[in-house]
C-alpha cells in the first residue's frame, strides 16, 4: 500500500470527532464519508485522497462503539491508520469489518513521519517505508488472530 500522510499530532482522537453523533442515524457509507473527522478537521473531506494514511498518537478511536467511525474513514479513502495505540472497539471494528488496517507504530516513527509524507506499508514484512524521507520503520506485528482475520479479509471470511 502506498499513500500520503494526514497527520494529527494528538492523543485520544475519539469517535465523536471521527464521526459526530448526529450522523449515527445515517447508514449510507458514502454519505458518512463526507462527515469523517468533522469534529476535528473540517477540511479533511476535501483533502483526503484514496489510499491516504492517517497518523496519530495514542488511544485512537476511543469512545463509542460506532462502526460508522472506521466506515467513514474507509469510504473517505483511508487504507490504514498508523497510531501509537488504538481503543479496543475501533480496532476490532476496523479489522473484523475489513474497513482499514489499524497499525501500531512506535514513538520514533510517530515523531519522524510528517504530514504529507509518502509512505509504503508492507504488512507481510511489518515494515513502513517513508519514501519522502527515505527511511524504514518497523510496525508492531498484528497479534496472531488479528493477522489471520486481516489475511482472510474480515471476520466473516475467517474460519476459526
Amino acid at each position: 500500500m502506498k499513500g500520503s500522510v494526514i497527520k494529527y499530532e494528538r492523543d485520544n482522537i475519539d469517535t465523536d470527532v471521527i464521526l459526530p453523533g448526529p450522523y449515527l442515524k445515517i447508514h449510507d457509507y458514502a454519505e458518512l464519508a463526507t462527515h469523517a473527522m468533522e469534529g476535528l478537521d473540517k477540511d479533511f473531506h476535501k483533502r483526503v485522497k484514496p489510499g491516504d494514511f492517517i497518523v496519530a498518537g495514542k488511544n485512537f478511536g476511543c469512545g463509542s462503539s460506532r462502526e460508522h467511525a472506521p466506515i467513514a474513514l474507509s469510504y473517505s479513502g483511508i487504507k490504514a491508520v498508523l497510531a501509537l495505540s488504538f481503543a479496543r472497539i475501533f480496532y476490532r471494528n476496523a479489522v473484523d469489518g475489513a474497513f482499514l488496517l489499524p497499525i501500531e507504530i512506535d514513538e520514533s516513527a510517530y515523531r519522524d513521519i510528517s504530514d504529507s509524507d509518502s509512505l509504503e506499508v508492507d504488512i507481510s514484512k511489518n515494515e513502513i517505508t517513508n519514501l519522502t524521507k527515505n527511511k524504514v520503520y518497523k510496525m508492531k506485528p498484528f497479534p496472531d488472530i488479528i493477522g489471520k482475520i486481516v489475511e482472510a479479509g474480515g471476520l466473516f471470511n475467517y474460519k476459526p
Binding site: 469512545g63 463509542s64 462503539s65 460506532r66 462502526e67 472506521p70 472497539i89 476490532r92 471494528n93 473484523d96 469489518g97 474480515g154 471476520l155 466473516f156
Partner: peptide, 24 residues
C-alpha cells in the same frame, strides 16, 4: 454499544461490540 460494560455490575461479562461483530 460501548457502554454495554454497565451490566457487568450484575456479575456478568459484558462488553460492547461494533456492527460486524454483533452481526457475527
Amino acid at each position: 454499544d460501548s457502554h454495554t460494560n454497565t451490566t457487568g455490575a450484575l456479575g456478568a461479562f459484558a462488553a460492547g461490540l461494533g456492527h460486524t461483530d454483533v452481526a457475527y
